[in-house]
Design a protein around this nucleic acid. Structure first.
Lengths: 339, 339
DNA sequence: CTGAAAGCGCTTACAG
DNA sequence: CTGAAAGCGCTTACAG
């Protein structure tokens, strides 16, 4: 009794239009190869039947899914959410759909997810940063999966990457901090293991210290996962050390937000008693009291460009053009000149 | 000269193991139907060849993609990013992959994206809120796509939804505000058109006013897209009105953050000169100065449960069980009792 | 428990 | 410009 409304197939359209399935397929995929008269006839049949191509069959025959996979640490960090949003919009504009996975910063999980997305037929992959096992790169190469990295840029790296130089960017900020008279610098760093961005940022500070004839070994560093509460905790821990630093440079804005919160809770005034800096320039940075001095990174732009380039790679129009984006220092109220 | 390393197929495995393709397929999909001896033999061949099933072929033959589509307004709002992250994790744990699209709060785009995801073979769909054209619901029903709504809960609605009651939640907060002595209440609302959550929140305040014998028509309301700068702008506009409100209730935390920023810029003290409230309880809320009084919503929990239920629907174990989650009022420093 | 074989719904050389 | 037909790589009744 139930009306079994079968979904129409290419065959149904062909029959209705009085042509072969090949012609229908052409009308849909390369209309310029079909004469107008035939095309109108076919398109009418498509309309009438409400035909939409069967995804599986199409994938199987065409060996393409028009699907791009992205594997990021987490969507909960605003920088990835924002970049991914732009990435998705751009993909959509180009007829691709986004498949998303996250790793919670766990490298083993990333490898597993890469395989899963490839198995799901992702035409191309977006990964974050450089640091990963050579086996994974080998697998990607062997399977010939176009892969683009983002959120980092290492001059001379052999993987195509669209991003900025984390190390130089943080070095620039640290130089600024030093130029403002700070000599007792402490750092709250993200976990460096398996995270080239976190490592680059730490190295950038060290570079600046060396450049200014200061001793990097004397700088207190606390390493902790990116998280507001961890930032707060680390800040307090730093204060328990010997000399109180005049500035605490944080590996990202989230850690900095935590540090600022704890400072307030402890009755320590930022920036009068101590300065604090961040990295990323997420929306939070401008809203904190005092507003946060940080490094601005064009996340949206990065996402957009990565999508455009990855699509080019998938369509064999590019082998992966690395691109370096500029970051810039945002001087705000949380950093004060030492008299 | 190039070594054409063809990807191994089921056939290769069958040949190597000396069995039929049917048996290999069974080993992979319902191993209990194959005797141990055969299975080991087959699994060895699978290992040796490094076989992975071809996605397209599998989808076509099995008519399933193990892919779930989600269409949200934007990943840039922390509430969706957070809920989606949990949603994705839970899907992953259950062997599904997430396909993501966003609409930038544009209903026409949503309809288009629904069709695109269905065409891509999504086994099920997650959508936000109730408000959409009946045609779209009809399409989903006709295509028999399991669809779950989230981020809202309307008692008695005929679409399965996992979320909370936006209207009652905001009403509760407004009642609290009134109980603290506020009589001059103003609101900065999100765009209500096509957004049942925004509308529910506005109605909730109106409900509370009526409940307390106050006149809703006297409440100044500014409607503006969810965005920090818009929140700031709207706040300033409200001050230009006749009597200055004693409290500004905002449709979400993002608008509230903007309002607080502008208050500071104008030299208006929160909460001494004016109180401000939000909705959502994103991380920002605890970090703002002063910390923001808002409505806490269990976004992560919501994402997790939505994933679990949607998978059940896709696997025909449920027809969609609506579920109401609790929200709670977070009293913080931005709201002050009127003497 | 296992196999032979049909069928899933497309795309694409190859002819004409 | 169009068609007949093979082929993509699986799954799954149906037998045995």
């Amino acid at each position: 009794m139930s009306s079994v409304r079968t979904v129409p197939t290419l065959d149904d359209v062909a029959r209705k239009a009085g042509v072969s399935t090949a012609t229908v397929s052409r009308c849909l995929n390369s209309p310029e190869r079909v004469v107008e008269r035939t095309r109108t006839k076919v398109m009418r049949a498509v309309e009438d039947l409400g035909y939409t191509p069967n995804f599986g069959a199409k994938v199987m025959a065409a060996k393409r899914t028009f699907t791009i996979g992205a594997i990021i640490p987490t969507m909960e960090n605003a920088i990835f959410a924002r970049g991914l949003q732009a990435f998705q919009e751009e993909l959509h504009a180009r007829g691709y759909t986004l498949l998303v996975s996250s790793t919670s910063y766990r490298p083993e999980i990333e490898a597993e997810q890469v395989r899963a997305l490839v198995a799901r037929g992702a035409d191309g992959l977006l990964l974050i940063g450089y640091a990963r096992h050579p086996d994974l790169y080998r697998y990607l190469r062997q399977r010939e999966i176009p892969t683009l990295l983002a959120w980092a840029f290492l001059p001379g790296a052999d993987q195509p990457c669209i991003g900025f130089d984390n190390r130089r960017s943080m070095q620039a900020l640290a130089n600024k901090v030093i130029a403002m008279g700070h000599r007792d610098i402490a750092m709250i760093s993200g976990i460096v293991e398996g995270n080239d961005r976190a490592e680059g940022r730490r190295q950038g500070i060290i570079d600046a210290l060396l450049e200014n004839g200061m001793d990097p070994a004397a700088m207190p560093i606390i390493e902790t996962p990116y998280d507001i509460d961890n930032g707060a905790e680390a800040f307090e821990q730093l204060l328990r050390g010997g000399t109180r630093p005049t500035v605490v440079m944080c590996g990202n804005d989230v850690l900095a937000a935590g540090a600022m919160r704890r400072a307030r809770e402890l009755g320590i005034s930022v920036p009068d008693d101590i300065s604090i800096t961040g990295f990323d320039d997420i929306e939070l940075a401008r809203i904190l009291t005092p507003s946060l001095t940080t490094v601005h990174v064009p996340h949206r732009e990065m996402g957009r460009r990565a999508a455009a380039e990855l699509v080019r790679m998938v369509e064999h129009e590019s082998k992966g053009q690395p691109e370096q984006l500029d970051s810039s220092i945002m001087l705000r109220d949380s950093l004060k000149r030492i008299p």
